[in-house]
């Protein structure tokens, strides 16, 4: 079985052929396109380490079949920085010490970018800390850097170009 698949990843068209329909979007990104910034944590939709944006919305890439996403527009952590200039959410994670081991960080950052977009789409101008905590609950951090993560997301949400 060979299944042709076309994705737009970080603005670039990528064509691949899957030999098996079982390939998840996560494995397609990591194993086929060598974009290993997106992490495989639980692989069961519980930890959020695999969070990417699909057609602008954050999802768990481990619970998405690649074949079902033919033609989709994917954004991963590799696509955030502009050259040497970090994305405001990335910069905020460093400024607020929002990680320890760093394994969950790409998922946290992509989730934060998605959350900030969601809040702006809903016209939520004031950033509520409780809303941020709730909105980030799909991303677990085993090091327990939640205090810094929350601070970073609140700070980034107040910068203009964070979405």
């Amino acid at each position: 079985m060979s299944i042709p698949l076309q994705l737009t990843v970080n603005g670039e068209r990528r064509d691949l052929v899957l030999e098996d329909p079982r390939v998840t979007l996560l494995d397609a990104l990591r194993e086929r396109l060598q974009l290993t910034g997106t992490k495989k944590g639980c692989d069961r939709g519980q930890c959020g380490a695999c969070t990417v944006l699909v057609d602008g919305a954050r999802v768990n890439a481990c619970l998405a079949l690649a074949v079902s996403h033919d033609g989709a527009r994917i954004e991963t952590v590799e696509g955030l920085a502009r050259g040497e200039a970090l994305h405001p959410v990335q910069a905020a994670f460093i400024a607020h010490d929002a990680f320890q081991c760093g394994f969950c960080t790409p998922g946290q950052i992509m989730s934060a970018v998605g959350l900030i977009r969601e809040m702006r789409a809903a016209g939520e101008t004031a950033v509520d800390v409780e809303r941020v905590r709730e909105g980030m609950s799909g991303n677990l951090c085993r090091c327990g850097a939640y205090a810094g993560i929350t601070e970073a997301v609140v700070a980034a949400a107040q910068t203009e170009d964070a979405a």
Binding site: V54, V59, A64, S137
Partner: peptide, 9 residues
């Protein structure tokens, strides 16, 4: 219900 990622899908 669930998480924001799951609700988006």
């Amino acid at each position: 219900g669930a998480s924001a990622q799951l609700r988006n899908a």
